[in-house]
């Protein structure tokens, strides 16, 4: 192993146990700046839990997560966001009662304290940034609509947009194309190719075609542990992976 500080994200010996059940067990992996890492694995492998641990939603039992050399395991959720980690949830998690514009505006990284939010001004910078992101996520024509009226795919894009406006250095996406129609999938792949420039991305995905298309490196989890890691070709050829996952 090279010097851990070279990595954008270094996860080492990470373990979390729920009443004795180890959802993530001695997990280690490293993400380089600008890398797209895809995590695959059968249901219950601990993929989502691993993301929960990184973003602070779940607290680790032991082990360490360092982001640009900073330990994340004892930071609060919003501090982890401020450090530059963004997280998209599996189900589209957006504010249904607000407009698309307001959804993006609330995610704009300024005025994050109580006082800051009170005096926050919707200035030209905010409008421009919102317009720019809306165009990327194909929602320019829907800015004034209440978010609850968007389609499932549009909601997924909106949440991705809400993360993009924060401009995180590490973006974590949990099944970004799940439940999308064929044409939406193609557009999402296009969107992801656009947004991964200049940042690292961790993606959980089941769609193998999609994974092959975007992944630099694939990590395969099974029962909370890494069983294989490397290029898609390497992983697909690994007999252990075939046995637990691809063979099914």
């Amino acid at each position: 192993m090279s010097e851990p500080t070279d990595f954008l994200l270094a996860v080492e010996a990470l373990t979390v146990s729920f009443d004795g059940f180890k959802a993530v067990d001695d997990l280690s992996f490293y993400v380089d700046p600008g890398e797209i890492r895809v995590i695959i694995g059968p249901n219950g492998a601990g993929k989502t839990t691993a993301l929960d641990l990184i973003c602070g939603k779940t607290r680790a039992t032991s082990g360490s997560i360092r982001f640009r050399g900073k330990e994340l395991t004892d930071m609060k959720e919003h501090e982890i966001v401020h450090a530059g980690v963004g997280r998209k949830f599996q189900n589209p998690t957006i504010y249904e009662d607000l407009s698309v514009f307001e959804n993006l505006e609330v995610s704009f990284p300024r005025g994050r304290s109580v006082f800051g939010a009170l005096v926050f001004k919707r200035d030209a910078e905010v409008r421009e940034r919102v317009a720019e992101i809306a165009e990327m996520i194909f929602l320019t024509d829907h800015l004034e609509d209440r978010a609850e009226y968007l389609s499932h795919g549009q909601k997924q894009w909106l949440e991705i947009g809400m993360l993009l406006i924060q401009d995180p250095e590490l973006l974590m996406l949990d099944e970004p194309v799940a439940g999308m129609s064929g044409s939406e999938r193609i557009k999402t792949a296009e969107l992801l190719h656009k947004i991964i420039e200049g940042r690292s991305v961790i993606v959980i995905e089941h769609d193998m075609k999609f994974v092959e298309d975007i992944a630099h490196k694939v990590t395969v989890l099974h029962q909370g542990r890494v069983i294989s890691e490397g290029s898609m070709a390497h992983v697909q050829a690994d007999p252990k992976v075939v046995e637990v996952y691809l063979g099914h």
Partner: peptide
């Protein structure tokens, strides 16, 4: 914006938290 954040957290508290 605080008012909109209040509505947002009524709806999706975690999303607000993970928006910083």
């Amino acid at each position: 914006k605080l008012g909109r954040i209040l509505v947002a957290l009524r709806d999706k508290e975690d999303r607000v938290r993970f928006s910083g």
